[in-house]
Design a protein around this nucleic acid. Structure first.
Length: 655
RNA sequence: GCACCCGUAGCUUAGCUGGAUAGAGCGCCGGACUACGAAUCCGGAGGUCGGAGGUUCGAAUCCUUCCGGGUGCGCCA
């Protein structure tokens, strides 16, 4: 569509002899209106001042319309108030689209040629499982990688494992207590051990439990007071107090883990419970502190290159990676490199020294902090704990510097959940303060949370189990299909099941939270993978029946409203890919696919009622229509397959 | 308390960086199969775009403020 918009814009600029909005600028303002108005529309408001003498928009529109009427590329040119509406001639539209869209790789481009983008995505923590919440970083990052590659970029997709840090200490020391040495390579077992160990060493939440009764009592007193005062307050203060009451009630509900609208309802019973919990927490606290210290000590040993500790670490790391690889393979996700924080353990001292050269570092309570210019309200950056071990951020600084050295990237993206925004803001501002101007090209690509996923097994939902469940549900439906050859059933079911999970994620705007439901993502109607996959399979089926597309195509005979709708949607596809690339937003591609699947289904179904609208026409005198329509089906097939590939979803040829 | 993100139909959500009557999907109501694949299609009902101001010829979109929700806030990652 970009090329068609450009054609219109340059025609306008030439015909009016304009000098200052360039054709390129003007093309940016060309709209795709409601089909009843035409194919393209140009609002003339912004041209009022471009003309000498200036004229009101409707007059300009009229003038442009008169000039353009002679251009045979555009038909039905007319001014409608301040707009010029045009229809693209059948031959221009169909010729452009059919030749482009049937070329493999349609939607690709070259604006990224010679540039490198580094994409950090998936990046799970070793020692923890690949859980459902990893889905977002994994599929979004993978799609962004493929989209960039399609636009000509050189892509370095890095799975940057969280393979260094305290969590390893927790796992190693926890294994001594709870582990079964025979199952040391069993990833699921390691997860159980880790979950148990991290709970036992969770000093923070024990301390919260201990202080909870006191806090709760204070909150309750405040609440009761606020409530009694409420009646006697003047209007102004009343609102404030009401707000306070609501927030107090909310806090209390959290503490008491209750859903009662009045948290004070069973207050004494609840308080009793909390008091009991506090007592238990007090007893567990010393032990937890000891476990926590052990875990930290283990990390210290790792950082001091203790061979035994490193040996244990490596064993856990290897078995985790094996498990991850299995799931990635199932999802069709590839990386250019699997690296990890551990890669930088050797250069951390050097990195810290490098940071220290800049003004603003200091030791605070035994911890090394950077107190450079950070935006107001933000805490200083911590480089080292008071035990002398490094932090996640320290390792990220080292990794960023190394990545720039290696790749000289034009863009570096971190596809990481939105709740880590602060860390990235700290990372980037530290790098900038160190004088690295390339840090301007680093972006945190945040994403929202997934709701509605029921939790099992201690709050962890395994990604693999979600995939498996989706595949099983897909199988129940597919078994009834007579279109799938027995030997392909398993592959098709896998493509639909896994695809529906990926698609269900990528149809949502990256930054918004979404609610997951199997029913929704696997619905064969609506905005789902199966729906788009079905459209693709149907196109393949027609092409199979036709035995391919003859070569004597006359694109200009594609003139029905349905065909034009399909052509325009096809024309919009490359724009979607470009936009998705520049905004790091795969959902734009996903939605373009939904649109295409929809107009396709609509077109093909029109043939059910009106036989003359069918593709596979038998009449000898209609063979030119048959051929042109087959070419259109082929363009649809090619585009759907390409788009599905970009978002990492398979496209079966029959289902 | 401070910072960032988000409020669009009953539900899930688009809205192309300010343009024509705010588009979909699910659900609901009503239609279309001797099928180029009905796993589909066509039609209908359903919206004061959280509220109030402001900028503009023009605001769901930009600014201010209020209401409501989420997340983060020095030794976890």
């Amino acid at each position: 569509m970009a090329t068609l918009k450009a054609a219109l814009a340059s025609a306008v600029v030439e015909s009016q002899g304009l000098s200052h909005p360039s054709a390129e600028e003007l093309a940016h303002h060309v709209k795709v209106p409601d089909p009843s108005h035409g194919d393209l529309a140009l609002p003339c408001f912004l041209l009022t001042k471009a003309l000498n003498p200036p004229a009101p928009p409707p007059v300009i529109a009229e003038r442009i319309a008169q000039k353009l009427a002679a251009d045979e590329r555009f038909v039905d040119v007319h001014a409608a108030g301040p707009y010029v509406n045009i229809r693209i001639s059948a031959s221009l539209l169909a010729n452009t689209v059919l030749s482009d869209a049937r070329t493999p790789g349609y939607g690709g481009g070259q604006e990224g040629a010679g540039k490198t983008v580094v994409i950090d995505f998936s990046s799970p923590n070793i020692a923890k499982p690949l859980a459902f919440h990893h889905i977002r970083s994994t599929v979004i990052g993978h799609a962004i990688a493929r989209i960039h590659r399609a636009r000509g970029w050189t892509v370095q997709g890095i799975n940057y494992l969280g393979d260094w840090g305290k969590q390893f200490g927790l796992l190693a020391t926890g294994f001594e207590r709870h582990g079964n040495p025979k199952r040391i390579t069993d990833a699921k077992h390691l997860v159980e051990v880790y979950v148990k160990a991290s709970r036992e060493a969770d000093v923070g939440s024990l301390q919260r439990s201990i202080t909870a009764p006191t806090e709760v009592r204070a909150l309750a007193t405040q609440l009761t007071e606020a409530r009694t005062n409420l009646g006697s307050l003047p209007k102004e203060q009343k609102k404030r107090t009401e707000k306070l009451i609501r927030s107090l009630e909310k806090k209390l509900r959290e503490y008491l883990a209750t859903k009662d609208s009045d948290p004070l309802q069973n207050f004494n019973v609840q308080l009793e419970k909390l008091t009991q919990e506090a007592k238990e927490a007090k007893e567990a606290l010393e032990q937890a502190k000891a476990y926590d210290t052990q875990a930290r000590a283990f990390l210290k040993r790792m950082e001091d290159s203790d061979e035994e500790a490193l040996g244990i670490w490596k064993r856990y790391r290897d078995s985790s990676i094996d498990e991850f690889k299995r799931v990635y393979h199932r999802m069709g996700v590839e990386f250019d490199a699997i690296e990890g924080e551990s890669f930088y353990s050797k250069v951390l001292e050097q990195t810290i020294a490098q940071v220290r050269q800049q003004p603003g570092t200091k030791i605070d309570n035994g911890a090394e902090v950077v107190d450079m210019v950070v935006p107001k309200g933000q805490p200083p950056v911590l480089l080292k704990t008071s035990d002398g071990t490094t932090l996640y951020l320290t390792r990220d600084i080292a990794a960023a510097i190394d990545r720039y050295k290696r790749f000289k990237f034009e863009r570096a993206l971190y596809v990481v959940a939105a709740d880590q925004s602060l860390n990235f803001s700290q990372l980037f501002s530290t790098l900038k303060a160190m004088g690295f101007t390339w840090a301007e090209n680093m972006h945190h690509v945040p994403f929202g949370r997934v709701h509605g996923m029921s939790t099992r097994r201690g709050n962890i939902v395994f990604l693999d189990e979600v995939l498996e469940e989706a595949v099983q549900k897909a199988e129940q439906v597919c078994e009834q299909s007579d279109k799938i050859a027995k030997e392909h059933l398993k592959d098709v079911v896998e493509a639909i099941g896994v695809g529906s999970i990926i698609f269900g994620d990528l149809k949502n705007l990256r930054t918004s939270d979404y609610t997951f439901s199997y029913e929704e993502v696997l619905d064969f109607r609506g905005h789902t993978a199966p729906y788009v996959q079905f459209s693709h399979a149907r196109a393949c089926s027609i092409l199979r029946k036709a035995g391919g597309v003859p070569s004597d195509i006359q694109p200009e005979c594609l003139v029905t409203p349905e065909e034009r709708a399909v052509l325009k949607t096809l024309a919009a596809y490359p724009d979607a890919v470009t936009l998705a690339c520049d905004n790091f937003e795969p959902s734009i591609v996903t939605r373009a696919l939904i649109d295409l699947a929809q107009v396709t289904a609509s077109w093909l179904s029109a043939g059910n009622k009106d036989r003359t609208k069918r593709v596979l026409l038998d009449e000898p005198e209609l063979q030119h229509l048959r051929t042109a329509r087959l070419a259109l089906v082929d363009a649809i097939r090619e585009t759907l397959a390409h788009g599905l590939y970009l978002i990492g979803v398979q496209a079966p040829t029959a289902m």
